[in-house]
């Protein structure tokens, strides 16, 4: 005997809300622990990196995707990954003249769906985990990149912009995870 209600709840929506809410609770806890915005940003980036390192396995297994030809190819694959894991399609834009830097523009960001930043935390990069995920995942496919947020809707910007800069191609033979 199933009760009425719930019918309207889309399981996919609930899934992403579960992730959003868990992430929110995590950020709030880290903020309580460290207080300092920069340190919180650093922790989120670090955790993201570790997630990215593991997530790439899943991505490769699902897509059967091969090596990236160039950075444009990488950008397309990142776009696809956002679609797969967060159900959003960021636009790829703002290429640097040298073609070694681009931006992912997020028009809506599921991570920040319910968030209103508390007063006095203007320096908090709430979604910084995403920058870390990108960095970690790409490192596993021999691409060393820097990734950082340049705009954030939470801070009043018109969109959320994640900048990605290619640093170097890592040698295949290098054992991963060593310093």
């Amino acid at each position: 005997m199933s009760r009425q209600g719930m019918r309207s709840t889309d399981p996919k929506k609930v899934n992403s809300e579960l992730f959003t809410l868990t992430y929110g609770a995590l950020v709030a806890q880290i903020l309580k622990d460290y207080e300092n915005d920069d340190e919180v940003n650093r922790q989120l980036d670090r955790m993201g990196y570790n997630i990215g390192v593991r997530l790439i396995e899943d991505y490769l297994a699902r897509t059967g995707s091969g090596r990236c030809y160039d950075l444009r190819d990488t950008a397309d694959k990142l776009q696809m990954a956002f679609k797969m894991y967060l159900s959003i399609t960021p636009s790829v834009t703002n290429w640097s003249p040298a073609g070694d830097e681009f931006s992912l523009i997020l028009e809506n960001n599921p991570l920040t769906e319910f968030v209103e930043l508390p007063e006095g935390h203007g320096g908090l990069k709430y979604s910084n985990i995403l920058a870390g995920v990108l960095r970690g995942a790409l490192e596993m496919v021999q691409l060393e990149v820097a990734a950082w947020f340049v705009q954030d809707q939470l801070a009043g910007d018109s969109c959320t912009e994640l900048r990605v800069k290619f640093l170097k191609r890592l040698e295949d033979a290098m054992p991963v995870g060593e310093d």
């Binding site: 899934n15 992730f19 868990t22 593991r54 159900s87």
Partner: peptide, 12 residues
């Protein structure tokens, strides 16, 4: 696919 993300977040 978004299940994976939650599981990895929990693990991390």
């Amino acid at each position: 696919a978004d299940d994976v993300l939650f599981e990895l977040l929990h693990m991390e």
